[in-house]
């Protein structure tokens, strides 16, 4: 694999992610069903390019997220690198790699990432993590992320299978 390719992809993600997340997706989807592209992008980097790219992606996109959110700065830049590294390590430990295993890892780390960010926001009293917010914000958000992730990673696996990449 070309060594510069992950970094080019990461740079591209950093450029398009915020406009997509802040301006485009809220216009296309209901608020609670907007997927968190940041966490999916970090998972992508971690799963396909390893923990090095995963952690850098988490740091870069976490910084951008913290810059463009009204919450207390620091939550995303802490959570996203953890998600990137964690997903990469977990994927390395998976013995029978395949689309299903990848989806399990994605779902697991989406839940960890979303819960982690929410817990940190709640810890800094920026939000109240109560029953209502779990049902109306956290669960739809996780569902949207997992569904969007399934589509995204499924397509990636399909494309890789066509190219003959294991």
């Amino acid at each position: 694999m070309n060594a510069t390719r992950p970094w080019v992809i990461l740079a591209g993600l950093a450029v398009v992610l915020i406009p997509l997340q802040v301006y485009l997706l809220p216009m296309l989807l209901p608020e609670r069903w907007v997927p968190d592209l940041g966490i999916l992008a970090v998972l992508w980097c971690g799963l396909f390019f390893g923990e090095g790219v995963g952690v850098v992606a988490g740091l870069l996109l976490g910084l951008l997220y913290d810059r463009f959110t009204a919450g207390v700065v620091g939550q995303h830049i802490f959570v996203l690198p953890c998600v990137g590294v964690g997903a990469a390590v977990a994927w390395r430990l998976v013995s029978r790699k395949g689309p299903a295993a990848r989806m399990v890892v994605v779902a697991l780390f989406v839940v960890i990432g979303e819960l982690g960010a929410a817990a940190l926001f709640a810890l800094s009293d920026a939000i109240l993590l109560d029953g209502w917010s779990v049902i109306h914000r956290l669960l739809p958000g996780i569902t949207a992320d997992v569904l969007f992730g399934a589509a995204l990673f499924g397509l990636a696996d399909l494309a890789a299978a066509r190219r003959g990449v294991p």
Partner: peptide, 14 residues
């Protein structure tokens, strides 16, 4: 108003 918040936890806008 030109945009929303990246996080679903905050009702802020750009």
């Amino acid at each position: 108003v030109v945009g929303g918040d990246v996080s679903r936890w905050f009702r802020s806008f750009q």
